[in-house]
Design a protein around this nucleic acid. Structure first.
Length: 884
RNA sequence: GGGCGGGUAGCUCAGUUGGGAGAGCGUCGGCCUUACAAGCCGAGGGUCACAGGUUCAAGCCCUGUUCCGCCUACCA
């Protein structure tokens, strides 16, 4: 057998096994298979994206689930792909063109689209390679892209159907406009951020230039678009006005004074300027009062001719100019600093402009109702459940979804306007003639659809819809969607709406919502803050398995995960520990170790089999409940602190042949079995190192990915769970720890062999010691061990009390009496504190009469043990003091 | 403005029906014990944010206060 490296070196191991898995098509789903199906669609990363911590966590959790279900023998589909990220991708390619001194306008629409495809071919799948570095076991042969032929067909189909069902409409409304990206944005794509602006008070004089009404605004430059001034109908200050119109400053226009209950009487002067074309509220007011809408800011953020002498000026420059002009004319009544929230484009951070324009919308309410019901009636579970509240909250207040974007990269809206009659034809394929008049000159809508519109179809569009494909039959609805809460509305809610509407069934049975990864200080990682930790660097440095295990351990945390390299380092040590434990095991097991010989098992062998089986059982339960951190923690604890710390140390004499051939063979076989099952259980978390060890383990065949969880492959699994051996081992561990404690506290060299006397009146303890004392002698480094009933204490002995027994370590001539007294006093003090708490309960009549019997018994038992312990210690302390 | 989450060891965080406060890292002391110094053995460390309440019993349930964070929103 080749001797594995002394320390685990992940680099080439990872590359080698990933290539092996792909080559043997171990990630492939089978679309016509009778095994139970399990499916996940990946949240498609932006094609422009590079792997960040959020992807890493998200993908690792999915990979754990997929690998786990394969080990259960399920037919797993993990559907991968990317989305076309309309605005982001267009920005990237435009920037690239700009660096070559070109613009998309110069290229024209068709050439520009070709340029985007060329870019995608060249650098668009970087993130896919990065996902592979993580070990993601996606079915790569099925990789999808939202702009692919099939997915584009789905998009058009959905658009056409929703349009004919009256759930998509076109209309003139106030939308959020980004001047930089030059497109409309949905409400969700606007990020609100507080900025320190000013509140300007401006006087709008009456027609005779006297007095007037003072309004308050943060945006004086929009006054050119004002078509009214509004006051509250019941505001006494404005009951008897000399005129029902005012003069609009800096113009020669007169606008009406209207009365609308929207206006807050207590804010500012109680008078509001109404600009229907540039403010959502004003738009509503305008509709109520039939006011005209006047656009004074164009699509590039420049003032229109409506702004008179300010035409062509940037909107923010214009603000300053207007303020100055008003001041000159004595119409500026006041300025005060006023912090307020302003919407910014989520892609480029430009201040968005509420803008009146013609856009396409999805009528969300009817779709939302079904999406709400599906979660309420349990067709889809949201885990953890707290997120369901957010989901309901948003869907209950959902507003119509603006889906048209004035960019080129994306799914062009399948609507054509007839040149002759001006009517619209909406159809799956380009129509030859107008549906209304039969004319043949038709012009297609230039807008494209929001990228999220196509993402909303992802769970079924990737599986071949609108055809009723075998893939859909086998794998829809998907088993679970794993995602961060930041796209619960953007994506999850919309997939629910579309899935239910078009498939007649929810897109996923479970939604597992995980945390967001932040930096060590809890700040969102961002390039501008410079606090980004690159997952690829982490993987280079610590290995992918260590990184994945860290992420799994993080998964339980509520809303944030604070990433720290220290944690990853700690888990790298764990990987190394597993590696070295395996290395040790591989020195001893062989092809004959694959079955446990008949005959009585030694205590350590009974114990580790028992522990192994119950831990695996618990880890499986944890995974089924999406408690990734619990599963990871259980296995970590088992491997390090049971298998390595106790079992391997306890059976070394057996493995070195000191307990005879029978025990040697038996121990080898138990070690083989436990290691094998541990590797399989850990494989979903740390696939590379487990595969590497698997191939070195005698008696295994092929990839660990083809193995089965012991629970599913071994009908006798669970037979070794054995509380009695666990109890016996606990006794032994307690005694060894007691002796070690004395050794440590008394500063006795580990090489110094000691004698120990255990006194106990409990037969379970004395029997265990008599039968298995060799383990204690070995691990506590004893010369001699004896057992007796409680009685005289040896002279000059250090003492430790464990449950049910006293340990004496005679230290004739070595014992430092002062030190021992300190030890005992400290111990007694600790016991007293505990004892006080317990006694208080037992002296309380209410407790005795009202608490359940089993609790009372427990507390009584506790009290007995503690006072016993305390008494023994006190006796010893007294005797030692007497020696002084 | 509305909603949600959090405050537990020096740090990062677990703690699932209320019933003996945990882990990892860090700290301190001792060890090159032939799988592992990326290791082994031992130790120390907490008024569970604060104040009330319910209960025999509260980190956990209720009320209030305070601090932090997130989401959402049309008061100019």
């Amino acid at each position: 057998m080749d001797q594995p490296d002394k320390g685990y070196e992940p680099q080439n191991v990872e590359k080698r096994w990933y290539a092996f898995w792909e080559e043997h098509q171990l990630f492939a789903a089978n679309e016509s298979d009778s095994r139970p199906g399990y499916s996940i669609v990946i949240p498609p990363p932006n094609v422009t994206g590079v792997l960040h911590m959020g992807h890493a966590l998200n993908v690792t959790l999915q990979d754990i689930l997929c690998r786990y279900h394969r080990l259960k023998g399920h037919n797993v589909l993990w559907m991968p792909g990317t989305d076309h990220a309309g605005i982001a991708t267009q920005n990237v390619v435009e920037k690239k063109l700009a660096s070559e001194g070109r613009s998309r306008q110069q290229l024209g629409r068709e050439n520009f689209i070709d340029a985007v495809w060329a870019w995608r071919k060249e650098s668009g799948s970087a993130i896919i390679h990065q996902l592979k570095r993580l070990g993601a076991s996606c079915d790569w042969a099925r990789e999808r892209f939202t702009m692919d032929e099939g997915l584009s067909l789905s998009v058009r189909k959905v658009f056409v159907e929703l349009y004919h069902q009256g759930l998509i409409y076109q209309g003139d409304y106030i939308i959020n406009w980004c001047h930089r990206c030059h497109t409309a944005l949905s409400d969700l794509e606007v990020e609100h951020e507080e900025i320190s602006g000013n509140l300007y008070q401006i006087r709008y004089p009456f027609p005779d230039n006297s007095g007037g009404i003072v309004i308050a605004t943060t945006r004086p430059e929009t006054l050119f678009g004002d078509t009214a001034v509004a006051v509250h109908p019941e505001d006494e200050r404005y009951q008897n006005l000399p005129s029902d119109t005012v003069l609009l400053p800096l113009t020669d226009r007169r606008i009406p004074i209207i009365r609308d209950a929207f206006v807050g009487m207590s804010f500012g002067t109680g008078a509001l300027k109404v600009t229907p074309a540039h403010d959502p509220n004003d738009f509503e007011i305008g509709n109520r009062h039939n006011l005209p809408s006047l656009k004074v800011i164009d699509d590039h953020g420049l003032m229109t001719d409506g702004a008179g002498i300010f035409e062509g000026m940037d909107r923010f420059k214009c603000r300053e100019a207007v303020v100055q002009k008003l001041q000159e004319q004595g119409l500026l009544v006041g300025i005060e600093p006023y912090p307020h929230n302003v919407g910014h484009c989520y892609r480029c951070k430009t201040v968005v402009e509420p803008n009146l324009s013609r856009q396409w919308f999805v009528k969300a309410k009817p779709l939302a109702e079904k999406a709400i019901a599906a979660v309420q009636n349990g067709q889809t579970r949201i885990i953890p459940e707290v997120w369901a509240a957010n989901y309901y909250e948003w869907l209950n207040n959902v507003r119509d979804w603006c889906i048209s974007r004035q960019i080129w990269w994306g799914h062009q809206i399948p609507a054509w306007t007839c040149e002759a009659c001006g009517k619209m034809t909406v159809s799956l394929m380009p129509p030859d003639t107008c549906a209304s008049c039969g004319h043949s000159v038709l012009i297609q809508e230039t807008d494209v659809l929001d990228t999220w519109f196509s993402s909303a179809l992802w769970p079924f569009s990737t599986m071949g819809w609108p055809e009723n494909s075998p893939l859909l039959k086998t794998f829809y609805p998907t088993s679970v969607l794993v995602t961060g809460f930041d796209i619960l509305f953007f994506w999850v809610a919309r997939m629910m709406m579309m899935g239910i509407h078009f498939m007649g069934d929810v897109p996923f049975k479970d939604v597992y919502v995980h945390a967001l990864v932040r930096d060590e200080a809890g700040k969102k990682m961002s390039k501008s803050k410079g606090n980004v930790i690159d997952p690829l660097t982490i993987m280079d440095q610590y290995g992918t398995d260590a990184f994945r295990f860290t992420l799994a351990a993080f998964a339980a945390q509520g809303r944030d995960v604070k990433m720290s390299e220290k944690r990853v380092e700690g888990y790298r040590h764990f990987i190394n520990k597993l590696w070295n434990a395996s290395r040790f095991a591989l020195m001893h097991v062989n092809l004959d170790s694959t079955t446990i010989p008949t005959g009585a098992l030694s205590l350590p062998n009974q114990w580790i089999l028992s522990r192994s089986e119950s831990v695996i059982q618990s880890a499986i339960e944890a995974l089924e409940a999406y408690h990734f951190n619990d599963a990871a923690g259980l296995l970590y604890q088992f491997v390090w602190h049971e298998l390595c710390d106790w079992y391997l140390e306890a059976v070394k004499p057996a493995l070195y042949g000191k307990e005879g051939d029978a025990i040697l063979e038996q121990t080898r076989a138990v070690l083989w079995r436990v290691l094998k099952n541990t590797l399989i259980s850990l494989h979903p978390f740390i696939p590379f190192v487990t595969e590497e060890i698997w191939h070195k383990l005698p008696g295994t065949q092929g990839s660990i990915m083809n193995a089965r969880l012991p629970q599913d492959s071994d009908p006798g699994f669970g037979q070794f769970v054995n509380p009695e051996s666990e109890q016996q081992m606990a006794i032994i561990i307690n005694i060894i720890t007691g002796v070690r404690n004395i050794r440590g506290e008394m500063n006795l060299a580990p090489s110094l062999k000691l004698n120990a006397l255990i006194q106990t009146d409990l037969s379970v303890i004395s029997d265990t010691i008599r039968q298995h004392g060799d383990i204690i002698i070995h691990l506590a480094r004893l010369e001699r061990l004896s057992v007796d009933v409680l009685g005289e204490r040896p002279k000059s002995a250090a003492t430790a009390i464990v449950e049910g027994a006293i340990i004496y370590v005679p230290l004739e001539g070595i014992l430092d009496l002062t030190k021992e007294i300190q030890r005992l006093e400290k111990e007694i003090e600790k016991l007293n504190d505990e004892l006080n708490g317990v006694s208080k309960k037992l002296n309380n009549d209410d407790f005795l009469s009202k608490a359940p019997v089993d609790i009372i018994e427990k507390v009584k038992g506790k009290h007995a043990t503690l006072s016993d312990k305390q008494q023994h210690l006190q006796n010893n302390l007294n005797k030692i003091k007497a020696l002084l």
